[in-house]
Amino acid sequence: MSGHSTVERRGPSGRTTALGPVSRSGQPTAQASRQPSVRTSTRLSATPPGSAPGRRRGGRISRLLGSSVVQGVLILVALVWITPLAGLLLSSLRSEQDNATEGWWTALTDPSQLSLDNYSALLRDSGIGAAFWNTVLISVPTTVLVVVIAALAGYAFAWLEFPGRDAVFLVVVGLLVVPVQIGLLPVAKLFGAVGLFGTIAGVVLFHVAYGLPFAIFLLRNYFAEIPREMLEAARMDGGSEWRIFSRLVLPLGRPAIASLAIFQFLWVWNDMLVALLFADTGSQPLTVALQSQMRQFGSNIGVLAPGAFLSLVVPLVVFFAFQRHFVQGVMAGSVK
């Protein structure tokens, strides 16, 4: 791994705490809490040095042949991976009639089939448009709340002394694997009692609670890597804990916070299960609105395909805009 500018931020013990993908031998991991290794290793462009073709002299011809076979296989795999997505996109641009009679691939030779009619019809129909905004109204506040609450707690678990700190932290880590399904029924009753059932606030609160264990775990480990001297110097200078937190810890933690925020946003944006139960028709996000259309699958591809594509656009934009943080976030979040 190449040395990285974040190396000096490692804790004095050089400890590398991680619950996720980490190996004791110091192999790279997808753990955003280990700054140096993560940033180099989970980049998609992690081509190791010396892996370029032709590093060995002998058997160049067989190597060349082998490499073209490998290239062929990989091109084929990539095509297989692209095809379903292309199918959705093209289907979403064709009329209901075309979709019912012929496959979407006929549009490749006959582009005149394609039009944006489905999309304009979809946006005119208030249901899907409203659901899109509900999705935004659910995922943005959830992301902000998770980051803020987890950053506070993570800092406290890492740097504030209080009795039972490590035990409580372990319990929080343990909660990491409580499946969302456990919470559905009890929290539904709870929300029903306080009037949160069927509201966007209810969906948000549920998501925040189930996002917290991972978020706290991630940020606490990241914050713990901040050198003690740095914090102590700030305390000597008379900075209050609030000041230290907001002026020192948060900026230093930005890489981990970015990964966390992207992961959390994506998680909630793509969720269906939680909203299926906790949202009513007025507060349902895109995923729930679309799944209710699945029953008549086949006759309403003109709604489902553009709807699904609409729900994809935001994650795809995030993916391409923040590629590295995206991969780190997804990798780190996979422990969830």
Partner: peptide
């Protein structure tokens, strides 16, 4: 790329 896609969308993609 598919990691960005929701299971719902993946479901619709594969139903197709």
């Amino acid at each position: 790329l598919p990691m960005a896609v929701s299971f719902l969308a993946a479901g619709i993609i594969f139903r197709l």
